[in-house]
């Protein structure tokens, strides 16, 4: 297939996934603030994840929300992501199923009409749910209608490279100082980690898998290592290696992905967190970024 087509498909799904994850970050901040967390603790991480330098003083919720959802100065706001996803989809609409195009296009048509007033009217929770619903619809259309050939795999690559980045960053800002021995079950910690689990739709799964208290180490283990949890790093790297093996087993990016996958597949929590969770997250984010660049040079910039 055309390199440019692969590039558009890859970024189309990355932007949809990014929009969904911003909605998830906002949702967890909202939950924490409703449970009495300080504005600084609740809302600053949203900016940190998006790559803002550390802020002193107050971070007003309203500003964080409008910046993350609608601010035209922020190309990675949800509005900007959905527009970029739609532009990428538009450029390859002869390749993607109509259902997929319609799902992305109608999402854009809806958010195009959204302004601050409409957002207040709908409420943050309602809006975040809507973004997640649209992302589910897009993913469902992809999974339910696309032929399992190259275009499909580039769409999946975009989804899981982006998701891995987001799950890692979520742990980075919400799990500062966690080690394999973090077993605190203080009420505040329970609340904090329950919100983290809910933000990746993993609360029920956690409950189904374990009767233990929600502990920092338990949640971290799940989000890093549990291959059955669809937003864990392990599950993301399963999907990435699966698609790359089908695109081209001999590519350099396939090797990089395999190495990253092996670490999660065969690693133990205490080894991975030897130098702390922060260090692990930093390394993972860099490695994931390098993998993304390698995918570009292997497939998307052919000459």
């Amino acid at each position: 297939m055309l390199s440019r087509t692969a590039d558009h498909l890859y970024w189309m799904s990355r932007y949809i996934e990014r929009a969904e994850n911003i909605a998830r970050f906002l949702d967890v901040s909202n939950r924490l603030s409703l449970s009495g967390g300080s504005a600084h603790d609740c809302w600053l991480p949203v900016l940190t994840i998006a790559g803002w330098p550390p802020q002193d003083g107050d971070v007003p919720a309203v500003r964080v929300i409008s910046w993350s959802v609608l601010d035209h100065a922020n190309p990675s706001c949800i509005h900007g992501c959905l527009r970029a996803a739609r532009e990428n989809a538009h450029a390859v609409r002869s390749v993607i199923p109509n259902e997929l195009w319609e799902a992305i296009n109608s999402t854009w048509l809806e958010i195009k009409r959204l302004d601050g007033a409409a957002l207040r009217e709908q409420g943050l929770t309602g809006f975040c749910d809507w973004v997640k619903d649209r992302s589910h619809l897009v993913r469902g259309a992809t999974y339910g209608t696309m032929l399992r050939d190259e275009p499909f795999h580039f769409v999946r690559l975009g989804t899981f490279i982006e998701r891995a980045d987001n799950t890692a960053r979520l742990l980075g800002v919400r799990g500062a100082g966690v080690t394999a021995e973090s077993r605190s079950s203080a009420a505040a910690d329970q609340l904090h980690w329950a919100a983290v689990l809910r933000s990746v739709s993993a609360y029920k799964s956690f409950r189904a898998l374990t009767r233990d208290d929600i502990t920092p180490a338990g949640v971290t283990a799940m989000l890093l290592l549990n291959a059955d949890m669809p937003r864990s790093l392990h599950a993301c790297m399963d999907a990435v290696t699966y698609s790359l093996e089908r695109i081209l087993p001999t590519a350099e990016c396939t090797r990089l992905a395999g190495a990253a996958h092996a670490r999660l597949h065969y690693g133990r929590l205490d080894q991975l967190l030897e130098d702390g969770l922060d260090r692990f997250v930093d390394d993972f984010v860099v490695a994931n970024h390098t993998l993304g660049k390698q995918i570009h040079s292997d497939f998307l910039m052919a000459t």
Binding site: L2, S3, R4, R93, V95, F154, I247, L248, T303
Partner: peptide
């Protein structure tokens, strides 16, 4: 789409060895 062929832009094509080529993932 109807013909089942690639939709290309100029930047997807290049000329080499007296032929026209398109840039693909392979």
């Amino acid at each position: 789409e109807q013909m089942g062929v690639e939709l290309v832009e100029g930047r997807d094509l290049f000329v080499a060895d007296g032929k026209v080529w398109m840039r693909t993932t392979m």
